[in-house]
Design a protein around this nucleic acid. Structure first.
Lengths: 333, 333
DNA sequence: GAGTGCCGTGTAATCGATTTCGTAGCCCTC
DNA sequence: GAGGGCTACGAAATCGATTACACGGCACTC
């Protein structure tokens, strides 16, 4: 591939001039056309590696995502990629697969590649590696999940309004024995959703006792199914279940179907994170939708603020309750 | 961040020695410990940008995927990422969103970043850009979709066996009026699936007339729904529909439900590309599953063959029919 | 004991760009 | 017409690594 020296020779100028023409840094008049012609003829494209070495800017962002096969994160990744691209950045992606060691491994490689900034939706809880990133000075923004003790802005959705609406919705439909399927205690996201849901229910005089709080370490559908099974074996099984993740909701549905139970007649079901197909299940599932694309966009913008040396605040965007038919009544028109 | 010179000074050796210790290129004895100690104390990590410039190897692969929000491609991307990682490569990802211009744009940026090799699941048909990649000498492997006229190995799934099984399955269940929802004529994947399905049906004396071949340019669920609607308005509507993409299947299901029709009683439904939730719909959908993870792994391995200068052949892995209940009979045990 | 080879290390070139500094040429002013 | 300022450009340093080449010292052989 042609390099800048080839272009310079062909145009009969120095490499400095070529660089200046291409970057428009200082006015270049007469030779300009000759340089551009040489560029065209040789099909020259600047070597980004060399440029990055000299300028200490790679023009790449890193994204470490907790689980790429989870549709919520997929959409998030897609939104991030879109935003990054439209701002002239490439995206180097790493899938932690919910394994903290792998996450650390990735962060390390990304730092070694001298990405300009890093987005992390952290798997697991604390991470020494993340503090190291902050210490290294690489701009960092947390995505979807906060990490206690890490000094970086976090972009995520606020479920308060949606969960308040959900509690009202369930109360209005006469559901008195709600249950929740969550990540194990200690996971910030799980704890928060549980607390908010419990508080919102309390406002309607509805209790959420611990026996109807089911934790599953794998955030997968087998876990969801197992927890749902436990719920149904209770002397007083729940009449409404909130699954705080879409894969877990899938597992819960399986268990219900396996036992011949009907949604919403026997049990109401609500899923956190709306996926394209939840409108297509039978019945369509009432869901709490996070503003995924906006989250992705906001995260990239926040990261760019940091990269450009400005201070950046955390961002909280509201999640919304999407009422479908899985709790009983059809949505009001 | 500390650089190699800092390490050299601290250890009292030259940078060459540090480099040699770290890369194990030539035997270094006495100073070895001193160097490693300095590395540890300074928390030194080699700058990958500088290394890439010198060695002309970035250790990154590029993946341009046609639609990241499509679960099939998500799983593919995940598999590719996994395989790349385990071989010590990072993955720079680009989502073409089924737009050819955007795809070209991405390929260009990836080339500028001097990735070591490129995987492309091409959106649209021909692409001058892809020929340019081949000409540039960057190792290229096509993924899932062939591109006529581009001299690069292609890794994809072969639907012949699965479609043959499907035709037998439908014939056995007495379905005589099959239909297919495909990408528009001219798309290699769509054409091939149509041809194979038609041939397989013919072996059972079943015809697939053009009126029951529905093309949709957007490979999305609205397209699937529209085509299904057209099918149902036929004087003789089909009694079995194959949707050659999971999003289109979703749209088809919607239309069926909207009309109050039942699967499989009124119409049998089969989906190409199995997704985690097709086992959880009502009824569970019979599907043609591509060996996604194997495809991803094979693609990366093929690409590495090319990178290391060996010749690499195209890879065809068989897709499988997964019989569930959406065509009538439960699967045989 | 001189020659031969090998081992471990340092010096400096190199990758391909950007950028600082220096300078030639020109125009303008007084 | 000498000096000042500006413009357009070239020479060379620089980023941080790898690596070709050179060289000193030691062990070994004959």
């Amino acid at each position: 591939m042609a390099n800048i020296k080839d272009v310079a020779e062909r145009a009969g100028v120095s490499v400095a001039t070529v660089s200046r023409v291409l970057n428009g840094h200082s006015p270049v008049a007469e030779t300009r056309e000759r340089v551009l012609a040489a560029v065209r003829e040789l099909g020259y494209r600047p070597n980004n590696v060399a440029r990055a070495l000299r300028t200490a800017r790679t023009g790449a962002l890193g994204l470490v995502i907790s689980d790429l096969t989870n549709p919520f994160f997929t959409e998030l990744a897609d939104a991030v990629e879109d935003a990054a691209r439209s701002l002239g950045y490439s995206l180097v992606i790493g899938n932690a697969g919910e394994r903290p060691e792998q996450q650390d491994d990735y962060i390390r490689t990304l730092l070694d590649r001298r990405i300009d900034g890093l987005l992390v939706s952290s798997a697991g809880t604390g991470s020494a590696m993340l503090s190291e990133v902050v210490a290294s000075g690489t701009p960092l923004v947390l995505l979807d999940r906060t990490v206690p003790g890490v000094d970086a802005p976090c972009v995520r959705a606020d479920g308060r309004a949606a969960l308040t609406d959900l509690a009202a919705h369930l109360a209005a439909l006469g559901r008195r024995r709600p249950a929740i399927i969550v990540a194990p205690a200690g996971t910030p996201t799980g704890d928060e959703r549980l607390d908010l849901f419990r508080t919102a229910l309390a406002a309607h005089g509805i209790a959420l006792p611990d026996e109807r709080v089911g934790a599953t370490p794998d955030l997968q559908h087998t876990g969801g199914r197992r927890v749902m099974s436990g719920f149904l074996d209770l002397p007083e099984p729940p009449d409404a279940v909130l699954a705080t993740d879409n894969l877990m909701a899938l597992g819960a549905m399986d268990e219900l179907r396996a036992r011949g139970l009907r949604v919403p007649d026997d049990v109401a079901l609500v899923v956190y994170d709306d996926g394209p197909w939840f409108a297509h299940t039978d019945p369509p599932l009432t869901a709490i939708a996070q503003p995924t694309r906006e989250l992705g966009r906001a995260a990239v913008h926040t990261l760019l603020e940091r990269i450009e040396g400005r201070v950046a605040e955390s961002v909280l965007l509201p999640a919304r309750l999407i009422t479908r038919r899985s709790c009983g009544e059809p949505a009001a028109p």
